[in-house]
Simulated assay, not measured.
Amino acid sequence: MAGPSFETTTFVLLRHGETVLTGQRRFSGSGGSDPALSERGRWQAARAADALAARGDISAVVSSPLRRCQETAAASAELLGLDVSLDAGLRETDFGIWDGLTSAEVRARFPDEMAGWLASPTAAPPGGESFGAVSERVALARDGLLAAHAGRTVLLVSHVTPIKTLVRLALGAPDEALFRMHLDPAALSAVAYFGDGRTSLRSYNDTGHLRG
Rank of each mutant, 00 (worst) to 15 (best):
M1R: 09
P4S: 12
F6T: 06
V12F: 13
R15G: 06
R15L: 11
E18M: 06
T19G: 01
T22L: 15
G23V: 09
R26Y: 02
F27Y: 14
S33H: 13
S33F: 13
D34N: 11
P35H: 14
S38K: 11
E39P: 07
E39K: 15
R40M: 12
R40F: 12
R40L: 13
R42Q: 13
A49Y: 15
D50R: 15
A51M: 02
L52K: 06
T72H: 14
A74I: 05
A77S: 03
E78I: 04
L80Y: 12
S85D: 11
L86S: 04
D87Q: 03
L90I: 08
R91I: 04
R91A: 09
D94G: 05
D94T: 03
D94V: 00
G96Y: 11
D99W: 11
G100F: 08
A104D: 13
A108F: 07
R109K: 12
E113W: 09
M114D: 02
G116I: 05
L118V: 10
L118E: 12
A123M: 11
A123H: 11
G128Q: 08
G128A: 08
G132C: 03
G132S: 05
S135M: 09
S135F: 04
V138E: 04
L140K: 00
A141S: 15
R142I: 10
D143R: 12
G144D: 07
G144N: 00
L146T: 07
A147L: 00
A147W: 00
H149D: 00
A150C: 10
R152C: 00
L155I: 00
V157C: 07
S158P: 12
S158R: 13
H159I: 01
H159K: 01
V160G: 06
P162T: 09
P162R: 08
T165G: 01
L166K: 07
G172Q: 01
G172T: 05
A173E: 07
L178G: 12
L178T: 13
F179P: 00
F179K: 07
H182S: 14
L183T: 05
L183I: 04
A186H: 14
L188N: 06
A192R: 11
F194G: 06
F194H: 06
G195L: 05
G195A: 03
G197E: 07
R198H: 08
L201F: 13
S203K: 03
D206M: 03
